[in-house]
Computed example of a mutant assay.
Amino acid sequence: MTSPIPWSDRLSTGTAATQGEVVRWYQETREGKAYVPTMVWGTLQTEAYATVILGRVVEFLGIPNDVPAGVAKRMQRQQVLYDGEHHYHVVLGEQALYTNIGGPEVMRPQIERLLEEAGLPSLTLGILPATVEVEMVPVHGFNIYGEDERAHVELVSSSVDVTEPSELRLYAKAFALLSGAASYGDDAESLLRKAHSYWAGTGPQG
Rank of each mutant, 00 (worst) to 15 (best):
V132S: 11
P165C: 03
E133A: 15
T163I: 01
D161S: 08
E133K: 14
Y145K: 06
A151H: 04
E154P: 01
E154K: 03
P138Y: 05
H140F: 11
A151R: 05
H140N: 12
M136I: 08
V156H: 09
A151P: 01
D161N: 04
G141D: 09
S157E: 13
V153P: 02
L155H: 07
V137Q: 13
E133F: 10
H140L: 13
I144N: 02
V132E: 15
E135G: 09
F142Q: 06
V156K: 04
L125P: 08
E149I: 00
V162F: 03
G146N: 03
P165D: 01
V134D: 03
H140A: 11
E147R: 10
K173V: 05
E147S: 10
S158Q: 11
V160W: 02
T131P: 01
L128N: 09
I127K: 09
L125T: 01
L125R: 06
G141R: 12
L123V: 11
F142P: 05
I144S: 07
N143R: 06
L125A: 04
E133H: 15
S157P: 00
G126F: 04
A130C: 02
V153Y: 02
V134C: 13
S122M: 04
V156D: 14
I127Q: 08
E149T: 12
R169M: 11
V134F: 03
L155I: 10
Y171K: 03
L168Y: 06
L168W: 00
T163N: 09
H152P: 01
Y145R: 11
E154G: 01
V134M: 11
S158K: 08
E149S: 11
K173L: 10
L155N: 14
A130M: 15
G141H: 12
S122A: 15
A172G: 05
H152L: 06
S158D: 08
S166T: 14
V137T: 13
E154C: 03
S166M: 08
F175S: 03
A172L: 06
A151C: 05
A174I: 03
A130R: 14
A130Q: 13
R169K: 10
E164V: 00
T163R: 13
I127S: 08
A130W: 07
F175Q: 10
G126C: 10
A130G: 15
P138H: 08
V160C: 13
V156C: 04
P138D: 13
E164P: 06
S122Y: 10
E147L: 11
P129I: 07
D161L: 02
V134N: 06
R169D: 15
E154S: 11
T124L: 06
V162Y: 00
E149R: 07
P165K: 05
G126A: 12
R169T: 07
G126H: 01
R150K: 10
Y145F: 15
V134T: 11
F142C: 09
A130Y: 13
S122F: 07
D161V: 03
R169A: 14
F142Y: 15
G126W: 00
L170K: 07
L128C: 12
E133M: 08
P165L: 02
L170P: 01
G146D: 07
D161I: 02
G146S: 08
N143P: 00
V162L: 05
L155P: 03
T163H: 05
V134P: 05
I144A: 08
L155F: 14
F175Y: 13
A130H: 13
I127E: 09
A172S: 13
T163P: 00
K173G: 11
E135Q: 15
S157T: 12
S122V: 12
V153F: 01
S166I: 06
E154H: 04
V162M: 02
D148F: 07
